[in-house]
Write a protein that binds this DNA or RNA. Structure first.
Lengths: 182, 182
DNA sequence: TTATCATTTTAGGATCTTCTGAAAGGATGC
DNA sequence: GCATCCTTTCAGAAGATCCTAAAATGATAA
C-alpha cells in the first residue's frame, strides 16, 4: 500500500481545488477539504490526522466531520482496542453524488417548490377577493410560477432516472439517449 | 396589465425564497432577489425601481445588476428619450437554467476537470521518478481521480442532451426514458 | 463649455460565517 | 470512584462577504 504521504503533490492539489469548488457552491471550504482528504486516503483517518493534514483546530475538525457524517458522505469506523473514532469516505462516486443530490434537494429544492405552490394559492386568493387585470394577464403571471415548478419537477424526474441507472447503467443510457435525439 | 404592485404577497414571498435558495448555493442573496423581481415583473425596471423594491443602495443595485447581465440572466433595455437604463429578465425558464448551467460549468466545473488531469499527470510523474507501491495500489489511487472525472463527463453529456431537448422536448424525453428503464 | 442626469467605483463599515482554544461532557479501564 | 482519553460544545476572534454613501466618471443636451 502506498504510504500515507506518497503522491503528496497530487493529493494536496486535489484537496485544495475540491475545497475551492465547494466554496463557490455554498459548502464550507474546510468541510470539502476534509472530505477530499478522506476520499483519497487508503485507510480511515482519525480527528488528529485531519487536524494535522488540513491544519485546523480540534473544534473545527470535529464540527466538520460531524457535518460530513450528517450528509452521509463519510462514515464512522471503530477499531478494536482503540477509543478513537476513525472516519472513512464513501468511495463509490456515483453513490457520493446521489447523496449530495438527495440532501440538497431536501434542504433547498423542496422549500422552493412549496413556496411556488403557496404563491399560486396567493394569486388565486387575491384574484378572488378583488379581481384585477384581464384573465390573460393573470394567467401570464401565474405562468411565471408554474414554469419554474415544471422545470424543477422535470429535473427531479431526470435525477431519479439517473440514480436508478446508477454507475454502470448511465453510460449506455447516455448513448441510447444521444441516438434517440439524433 | 396588472399594476406593478398587484399580487404583492405572492411576489414578495417568491422574491424572499428565491434569495434564500440562491444564498445556500453560493449566489448572493441580493443578486437573486433582484433577479426574481425582474423575472416576475411584466415590464423592464430601472435602477431606482430595484432600489425601492428590494431596498438596497444604488451601489448595490448597480453592482448586482451588472453581475446579472454578465451571467446573461437579464438584459439591458433602452427607451427612446430616456437616459435611464432598464433591465429585463430572460423569461424562458429553460433558457434561464441553460445559462446558469453553462456559467457554472465554465467557472467551477472546468477548473476541477483540469485539476483532475494534472493530478493524474503528477501521479505518473512521481511514479516514474521514484516508484512506490505495487502496480495495483497505484492503479487504485489513480482510479480515485478518474472516477470523478468520468462522473463529470457523463453529467456533461446528460446536461447537453437536456439542453438539446429543451423546453418542449424534455417531458416526452423523460417519459421515453422511464419506459426504457422499466 | 457647462449643467444635468445616470452609472460605476471605492473606502469604510456592518454582518455573517467559520475558526480557535479551552472548558465541559462522556466513556472506558484500573 | 478516579484517572485517562477522546469528543463535543461554546464564547470570543478572525476573516470573508456584501452593503452603503459619496465621490468619480461618463454621457447627453443646451
Amino acid at each position: 500500500m502506498p504510504k500515507p504521504q506518497s503522491f503528496d503533490s497530487a493529493r494536496l492539489l486535489f484537496i485544495r481545488r475540491w475545497g475551492e469548488m465547494a466554496a463557490s457552491w455554498g459548502i464550507s471550504r474546510t468541510m470539502a477539504e476534509i472530505h477530499a482528504l478522506l476520499y483519497l486516503s487508503t485507510e480511515p483517518l482519525c480527528t488528529d490526522d485531519v487536524m494535522e493534514q488540513i491544519e485546523v483546530s480540534r473544534g473545527s475538525a470535529s464540527t466538520n466531520l460531524r457535518q460530513l457524517v450528517n450528509w452521509g458522505l463519510i462514515h464512522r469506523v471503530h477499531r478494536r482496542n482503540d477509543r478513537k473514532e476513525y472516519f472513512e469516505a464513501e468511495r463509490d462516486v456515483w453513490q457520493m453524488f446521489e447523496t449530495i443530490i438527495r440532501e440538497r434537494r431536501r434542504r433547498e429544492v423542496q422549500p422552493i417548490m412549496e413556496t411556488l405552490d403557496r404563491c399560486l394559492a396567493m394569486v388565486d386568493e387575491e384574484q378572488r377577493r378583488s379581481p384585477q387585470g384581464t384573465k390573460a394577464e393573470v394567467e401570464a403571471f401565474r405562468r411565471r410560477f408554474t414554469d419554474i415548478g415544471e422545470f424543477f419537477e422535470l429535473t427531479n424526474t431526470l435525477l431519479n432516472l439517473m440514480n436508478k441507472a446508477g454507475r454502470t447503467g448511465l453510460r449506455p443510457l447516455a448513448t441510447k439517449l444521444a441516438r434517440l435525439m439524433g
